[in-house]
Design a protein around this nucleic acid. Structure first.
Lengths: 229, 229
DNA sequence: CGGTGGATTGACGGTTGTCAACTTGCGTGG
DNA sequence: CCACGCAAGTTGACAACCGTCAATCCACCG
């Protein structure tokens, strides 16, 4: 028996390319970790060089400038691969936003295994290409959109990913991050984020059941705000 | 004889992973193209789905928002791979900035070939990871830096990549793009770009032998301006 | 010599960052 | 059970920065 056999992301993460025998070997170099919200998995420039999969929860990848400002580079959810294999240096900090379970590998071990399993590398390549596309669409958001468009677009994206129920009065979901995280993600300050959220609330487009919950009352209005047309 | 045997990027592009026999096969699905400055290789959402290598020159990858604003997503130089293999949709426009030679493949053909050559896929994976890191450092620039820092950082990067000679009075190079391109790259307007360049010139940090040439007189000063310390 | 397109410069207004005060939510301890 | 304290979020005032619009300059080319 190995820990992967019953893993909840067995068919979602890169492991899906491996058969039962291969996964035994893979499992032997894996290590599970639990993280509490706010806990850091690896630091920028960390030489320990971990890679791995998110099994449950949400993590953020951030970079910090010399001036102490943070920019979130991306988010990773269940099944997503995190870290930099094959020699590229890790320049990102991985921080848990919710309670998180991950399965990690020391990079050298992972690299060696991956090189022997082309299907796994192919899967990883497709994931990396998708991540690249996502990073680039984020570049468009940071370079071309104003604060309201960024916040509205962000809420739409979160609604699409997190909304568990479309209750009465529209889609409703709970954000796994605070205003500071949203600011880091969108390249805005917490004050500006707060102002845009307030503006959307006052226009009747969203409601705030609690500080971390969002109810989308007018999806079209939100899309309109995100596009800036 | 095939066209690849004497190719100037034979040892630079993904082709370096292929032996002489493999490159024959690869060569048979390749097609060379010449582009003049400003000419477009493929459009956003283009269904023809080309992929390929830059042999010579510089191309830019751009996305256009519904409002008609352009954001440059990246640049590609000799040896760089361009396009999206394996099903991910092309969402970028590829435009030549200088005179450009590329070797292109129809995507299906490339995909099939790559799947049979794990070393090539591995090389492509490493390139994609590096591109992802670059896209993310660009995100930091767009999200966290003001206009002067962006322009100064951009000039430093160009100096590092393009500077052919460190003549008397500092490093000097010729930009392959106009102010509009720089603006699209940095998420700024041409006027703002122009003002920052003028500011750097008036501080004696750079000089402009011609409109498209930059001479870096004070590299430390430029680094200082880029960091914003 | 005039025309054209890119680059620069100037004036102005809007948006966003900064700084500061205030409010809210929530857990802890009296 | 209420009071307190702390952290997160909100709101306001103000200034700086950048985008917009417009005029001008300059290089290049006929």
């Amino acid at each position: 028996m190995n820990v992967c056999a019953e893993c909840s992301v067995r068919e979602l993460a890169i492991c899906r390319t491996l058969d039962d025998q291969e996964i035994d070997e893979f499992s032997s170099i894996a290590r599970r970790q639990h993280l509490q919200p706010g806990q850091v998995l690896q630091w920028e420039g960390d030489e320990s060089h971990l890679v791995g999969n998110v099994i449950e929860g949400v993590v953020k990848l951030t970079a910090t400038t010399r001036q102490g400002k943070d920019q979130t580079l991306g988010l990773a959810y269940a099944g997503d691969f995190i870290g930099r294999p094959f020699g590229s240096r890790s320049v990102q900090t991985v921080t848990a936003l919710s309670e998180v379970r991950v399965c990690t590998f020391r990079r050298e071990g992972f690299d060696a295994f991956a090189r022997g399993h082309p299907d796994l590398e192919h899967d990883l390549l497709k994931r990396t290409l998708a991540e690249l596309d996502q990073a680039r669409s984020w570049m468009v958001r940071l370079g071309q959109r104003d604060a309201l468009q960024r916040v509205a677009g962000f809420l739409l994206e979160m609604a699409g990913r997190l909304a568990p129920a479309a209750g009465p009065g529209g889609v409703r979901f709970k954000l796994p991050f605070g205003r500071q995280d949203i600011g880091d993600l969108l390249g805005l300050t917490i004050e500006t984020v707060s102002r845009q959220i307030t503006a959307l609330k006052q226009d009747g487009i969203i409601a705030l059941p609690s500080q971390r919950e969002i109810a989308v009352l007018d999806k079209e209005g939100l899309e309109y705000a995100a596009e800036g047309e």
